[in-house]
């Protein structure tokens, strides 16, 4: 990726005159053009390229707090992976990650699509209400975690207060290992609804109205129109929303750390929070890196799906 090697081929069409005296100007222009992009390339290389490579290396090293003092990080082969895969917590973590991701995505999508279909009906104030719907999505995640932790508080939280009106005894939302994951998934669904609604709404807006008119002439209205007109038309948007949703959900750390810290008894520990705990609580950076790599492999699988879908959509 050297700049000079690329500058030669970088001359744009504007300076394509063949006069020999201009070749120096051409080269200069090529270099200038690379200068537009070079800082971004450097940033991406240092802050994305380096960490990904470094994580792979660290995952084969015994990289702990001691490393920072002695500078030594002995190579340990696959020991970090062996220890990770062999621990009972890792299995819990994998199951939690799957439940968290699937539960969040399914509900976010269903509710998001419902709201998008609802808001498409351009009633008075629909645009205003749809705009306000973005608010939960824009708040700092940790502020949302704080308010949800308060809402879900067992003794005096608003949700238990409300349920108490119907005689329901106080529910230990965040402190019972059996319920904490459900509660955390619920909060994450709430966070994802605005995003899903917004993207799906824009997808719905791009369905040509003529299609509905033609379909209604053929007797397809209501559910039938959705099944035969809407759904086929928005399928590529749907795939993008779902795949992006999966990738974003796999990354979630803020919400879980804020609400439960991964507890109680690891019942809300996911791959991402587990990687955090190993590296930044236990200072086992090697093991944290191994878990990070598992996470990144899973994310990349979906990233590949996403890119192939958006490529296909671009070709259409």
């Amino acid at each position: 990726m050297t700049v000079s090697a690329r500058a030669g081929v970088a001359a744009g069409p504007l300076v394509a005159s063949g006069r020999p005296g201009r070749s120096r100007a051409r080269l200069a222009s090529g270099v200038t053009r690379w200068l537009f992009i070079a800082p971004a390339v450097v940033f991406v290389a240092v802050f994305f390229g380096y960490p990904v490579v470094k994580n792979v290396l660290m995952s084969f090293q015994d990289y702990t707090t001691r490393t920072f003092f002695t500078g030594e990080a002995p190579w340990v082969g696959l020991a970090n992976y062996a220890q990770t895969f062999g621990s009972a917590v890792f299995t819990t973590t994998l199951v939690n990650t799957a439940l968290f991701t699937i539960g969040s995505i399914v509900m976010q999508f269903v509710i998001g699509l419902g709201l998008a279909l609802f808001f498409r009906r351009n009633f008075p104030l629909s645009g205003f209400l749809r705009g306000l719907l973005l608010l939960p999505w824009l708040l700092p995640l940790i502020a949302s975690s704080a308010v949800w932790k308060w809402l879900l508080d067992q003794d005096s939280g608003a949700i238990n207060q409300f349920l108490g009106l119907f005689g329901v005894p106080a529910v230990p939302w965040l402190v019972s290992p059996g319920l904490a994951l459900v509660a955390v998934i619920g909060v994450n669904i709430w966070l994802g609804i605005p995003f899903n609604t917004t993207i799906l709404y824009s997808g719905l807006q791009s369905v040509p109205p003529e299609l509905y008119e033609a379909a209604s002439l053929d007797g397809a209205t209501g559910v039938k129109a959705f099944r035969y007109v809407t759904w086929p038309s928005i399928r590529s948007v749907v795939s993008v929303v779902i795949v992006l949703g999966i990738v974003y959900t796999l990354k979630v750390v803020d919400i879980i750390l804020g609400l439960t810290g991964g507890g109680p008894a690891n019942s809300t520990q996911t791959l991402a929070t587990n990687a955090y705990h190993q590296s930044f609580v236990n200072f086992e950076f090697g093991i944290g890196a191994a878990i990070s790599n598992v996470l990144i492999v899973v994310s990349f699988l979906f990233a590949v799906v996403y890119i192939s879908i958006s490529r296909k959509a671009a070709d259409e």
Binding site: Y50, P51, N55, T67, K251, V253, A272, F280, F302, A303
Partner: peptide, 16 residues
């Protein structure tokens, strides 16, 4: 692709 790399992965290596 950078949009899909979990921040915790970056943080882990960036710390060192």
């Amino acid at each position: 692709v950078t949009q899909m790399i979990p921040t915790i992965v970056i943080a882990n290596a960036l710390y060192t």
